[in-house]
Deep mutational scan, measured.
Amino acid sequence: LGLPKMEVFQEYYGLPPPPGAIGPFLRLNPGDIVELTKAEAEQNWWEGRNTSTNEIGWFPCNRVKPY
């Protein structure tokens, strides 16, 4: 089972920042694999864990694709 995984195809370094105070941003590099921890199809921002860095944070969902 486990959490859904997504592959990063466009880098994200915190700009634009996540809206409001939902949480810290998650740095993404192309090729990184992100395990989704909070993701809803109608939301533009998802939370996940970058398996390369083990960091957890928020990122724009348009930077990832199904793994």
Rank of each mutant, 00 (worst) to 15 (best):
S52M: 13
M6K: 06
Y12A: 01
N29S: 08
G57C: 01
L1G: 13
G48H: 00
P60F: 01
Y67C: 15
S52G: 11
K5T: 11
G14Y: 00
T37F: 07
G57R: 00
P18S: 04
V34E: 04
P24S: 11
T37Q: 11
L15D: 13
Q10M: 11
P16R: 00
N44F: 15
M6Y: 12
Y67W: 15
A39V: 12
Q10P: 02
V34L: 08
P30F: 09
P66G: 09
N62H: 14
P30K: 15
Y12S: 02
V64C: 12
Y67R: 12
A21Q: 12
P17C: 07
E7M: 10
I56M: 09
I22F: 13
G14Q: 02
A41M: 12
W45Y: 13
F59T: 03
N54C: 08
G2H: 10
G20M: 11
A39S: 13
I56D: 09
R49M: 09
L26Q: 02
W46E: 00
N54L: 10
I22K: 13
W58P: 03
V64T: 05
P66D: 09
T51V: 12
L26P: 00
V8W: 01
R63N: 07
E55Y: 05
C61W: 06
G57K: 04
E11Q: 08
W45F: 14
E7W: 07
L1W: 09
G31E: 06
L36V: 14
E40Q: 10
Q43I: 08
P18D: 03
P4E: 14
W58C: 03
L15M: 12
P66L: 10
P24I: 07
P66E: 15
W45C: 02
N62P: 03
F25C: 14
K38N: 08
Y67V: 14
Q43N: 09
N44P: 11
N54R: 08
A39Y: 15
P66V: 08
A39R: 13
E42G: 13
A21W: 09
E35Y: 10
P17T: 13
L28Q: 00
P30T: 12
D32T: 02
F59Q: 01
Q43A: 13
P24Y: 06
A21I: 05
V64N: 02
L1E: 15
G57W: 02
R63S: 14
G20Q: 13
A41R: 13
P24H: 13
R63F: 13
D32V: 03
A41H: 05
P30C: 14
P16N: 01
P66H: 07
L3W: 09
K5R: 12
V34C: 03
W58M: 05
D32I: 02
N62L: 05
P60K: 00
L1A: 04
R63T: 15
F25S: 14
P19E: 06
W58E: 00
P30G: 10
N29D: 15
E35L: 10
G31V: 00
E40P: 12
G23R: 14
W46S: 07
N44W: 11
G20P: 10
E40D: 15
P30N: 07
E40V: 10
P60Y: 04
F25P: 15
E7I: 14
E7A: 07
P18H: 03
I56F: 05
F25D: 08
P24K: 15
E7S: 06
E55I: 11
P16M: 02
G57A: 04
Q10T: 11
P60D: 00
L26I: 10
V8R: 00
T53L: 05
P4M: 15
E47C: 14
G20I: 03
L28N: 01
F25G: 13
N50M: 03
V64E: 00
L28M: 13
G2L: 11
P18F: 04
P66W: 04
M6Q: 14
I22N: 07
A39N: 08
L3V: 13
Y67T: 15
W58G: 01
R27I: 10
F9S: 09
G2A: 05
K65N: 06
N50L: 04
L15K: 14
